[in-house]
Amino acid sequence: MAVVYEKTKLLTDKPLHYCPGCTHGIIHRLVAEAIDELGIQERTIGIAPVGCAVFAYDYFNCDMMEAAHGRAPAVATGCKRVNPKNIVFTYQGDGDLASIGAAEITHAATRGENITVIFVNNAIYGMTGGQMAPTTLPGQVTTTSPYGRDPKLCGYPIRVSEMLATLDGPAYISRVSVHDVKHILDAKKSIRKAFETQIAGKGFSLVEVLSACPTNWGMTPQEALKWLEQNMIPQYPLGVKKEVE
C-alpha cells in the first residue's frame, strides 16, 4: 500500500492545543506541508505571534522565534536582514496583525521585506476569550461588542489584503479560505506560492486565510464553517490581490 496522505514531518509530534474544529490546525498543516515540499526546512525560521497561535513554536518543526504582540514582522525583518538566505515567515492572527501590529505589518509590506506572512483572520480575539477584533463583522456579537459591532461606535472591519495591495512593496498578496476541501487545496497553492515568491527574492508575500473559531463564535464546528462561507467571504472576497511577476 502506498501512502496517499500523512502528517508532514514539518509538524512536531506535540498535539495542537487548539479547540476542536478550530481551523488553525489546518492552516498550520498547510504551511508545514509547503515548507516540506519546497525542501526549505533547514533554512526556514518561523515567527510566532501572540494570540491563539502563540505556541506555534512548539508545532513547526524548524527554528522558531516568539514575538511580542503584533511585532512579528519587525522580528522577521531583523532575522531576515541578518541571514538573507533564510526563509522567514510570520504566522499572525487578526488582533496581532491588523490591530496592535498594524504599523509593523504595513511597513514590512511597504519595504518589500522579503518575508512571508500567514495572516489568519477569524474575526475575533480567540485566546483572550472572544473579544472584538479589527476584522469583526458589522453586527457580529463578541464579548466586547455584546450588542453586535456597531460601525458608528467602533468603525468598520479592515480588509488587510486589499489595503496592503495598494502599496508598491508587496510582491504577492492573496486571500483564501479553509472552509471546505476545495478551498483548502487552493489555500495550500497560495501559501506555496507565497514561499516561492520569497525564495525567488521577489519581496513581501502575504496570504490571508479566513478561519473559523467555533468556540468564540458560539457554534459547532460545522456551523462555524458555514458561517464563515456565508458571512466572512462576502465581507472578505477571496482571490489574488496583488502579484508581481
Binding site: 500500500m1 501512502v3 500523512e6 502528517k7 508532514t8 487548539y18 474544529g21 490546525g25 476541501v181
Partner: peptide, 19 residues
C-alpha cells in the same frame, strides 16, 4: 476509496491514508 478528503480537512492531522 482513499480520497483523503478527511485527512485534508482534519485540523489535528490525525488521519493517515494508504491505498
Amino acid at each position: 476509496i482513499g480520497c483523503a478528503f478527511c485527512a485534508r480537512m482534519c485540523p489535528d492531522a490525525v488521519i493517515k491514508v494508504e491505498k
